[in-house]
Design a protein around this nucleic acid. Sequence first.
RNA 1: GAGCCCGUAGCUCAGUCGGUAGAGCACGUGACUUUUAAUCAUGGGGUCCCGGGUUCGAAUCCCGGCGGGCUCACCA
Length: 528
Amino acid sequence: MSDLSQLARTSTAWPFQEARALLDERLKGTVPDKGYVLFETGYGPSGLPHIGTFGEVVRTTMVRNALKVIAPDMPSRLFAFSDDMDGLRKVPDNIPNQDMIRPHLGKPLTSIPDPFGTHESFGHHNNARLRSFLDTFGFEYEFQSATDWYRSGRFDDALLRVLAHYDEVINVVLPTLGEERRRTYSPFLPVCPETGIVLQVPVIERNVAAGTIVYQREDGRKVETPVTGGACKMQWKADWAMRWTALGVDYEMSGKDLIPSLELSSKICRILGGRPPMNLTYELFLDDQGQKISKSKGNGLAVEDWLKYAPQESLALFMYQKPKAAKRLYFDVIPRSVDDWLTYIGKFAADEPGKRLDSPAWHIHDGRPPHEDSHLTFSILLNLASVCNSEDKAVLWGFIRRYAPGASPETAPILDRLVDGAVAYYRDFVKPAKTYRMATADEAQAFRDLAGHLQSLAADASAEDIQAAVYETGKRDCFPELKAWFRACYEVLLGQDQGPRMGSFIKLYGVDNTIALLDRAARGEPLA
RNA sequence: GAGCCCGUAGCUCAGUCGGUAGAGCACGUGACUUUUAAUCAUGGGGUCCCGGGUUCGAAUCCCGGCGGGCUCACCA
């Protein structure tokens, strides 16, 4: 056993604790019969991938990476399993061509035409979105389609087992259901051969030897159908259990809203002769008001929102921190998460090997975090972006170089990515809040004077020279306090009550550009 | 009703193996012979929700409360 895996066994970082429990308690240190350890993440494909999807995959990957260190010879796979055979219950309101979808309600997602017109079916479309979503983060996973598993017959053995243990399964499920649902409940949902709809109908006969069930249609007709080969889909909780059994899932996370399902599915799984996977129940995400984040409400923060302003590693850090604690997910947590990430990757190299395994940086970067001398925190960058009034990265970089000589987009790629985020922040939050006011007559005169001053400067005038010119103008004109002069510049020219050092700003913004700006302000043109 | 999470500075939170209560922001003061803060230094501020238990020692472990929040009971 290597030193590293020895150290990892004693690490207190949660992915290592999970991996250790998985290895010792479930696997007993040996490779499962199927030849690998299977991690699964589930995906209900009627919606779009969201921040919970990301969290589940990133956290599961962390455990998987941890296992790799503790047991280097233990092969593992990660399945991203899409429930694309589920019947569509209602038309989503965030898709085009809703009328086209409506006649297909109740059918498996993979049997419904793609409202976007780009894929074989709605299910395929959503699967593709899931995959491209996961791929943008570089996750290592294997996509699996429920439809594919059902129709190919790879679920048949497990399905027949459900049929063989039908009564036991029913007896576990029924007590958890309401009166009404009990009457029609069946773990098997036959797919109607005529309409293609996934039926919720009572099963009145079972033929274990033939592998079939007989169900009663609404019109009273009795139909016999095999439970195998995709002729039947399983109802949710039984489905989960059947899948665990068929795939031999060893580890799967789920939100705390699924705790009752988890318990029930585990019982069913044991009935089928399977072993329920090890589970980590994570807490849900809340918005800034403490309300549950839901796609339909549109509260909280979407993955895309986060990535607009900050690198994905900062989001991965957020996911790493305390998976079992409910966390508020809204804009204000981003800067801190970014700065914490920078701190962790900054400290990593200097840490003892044992200590490194405890660092979130290890888990975010699979043991190999990048190193970059950090020059500026993200908080400072956001402040800088709002103060220097520019959507131009080059201008921002100009200010950064003054503060951190030697830094450049080439030598500090991480910082450069942060600058992208800062610019987006400026554009989305700062700029819309700007209010420009008109110059007073005195101020207009001063602006004209300043424009003249700048005109007479040499083309390569330094920021200090320009700054001197600004002061000169302020002193010569009728500003009893220089403070008022600078405030006028900020309020009229930049639409904010604070701003950068004017000399530096003009140098970076461009003297000619500034003169044009001053002229317009002096003429009373709106600058917004 | 059941289950889960949380309660630490004004705010947001960290606190790993039980060992002198921490960070960021905010606030106060001072410095930079030019508005500034994107600088530096420095200061104040806590009944670690309450009560018990274990211990030489508890924010931390155990038990019991209180408060806040969420989830589930119909569907996945």
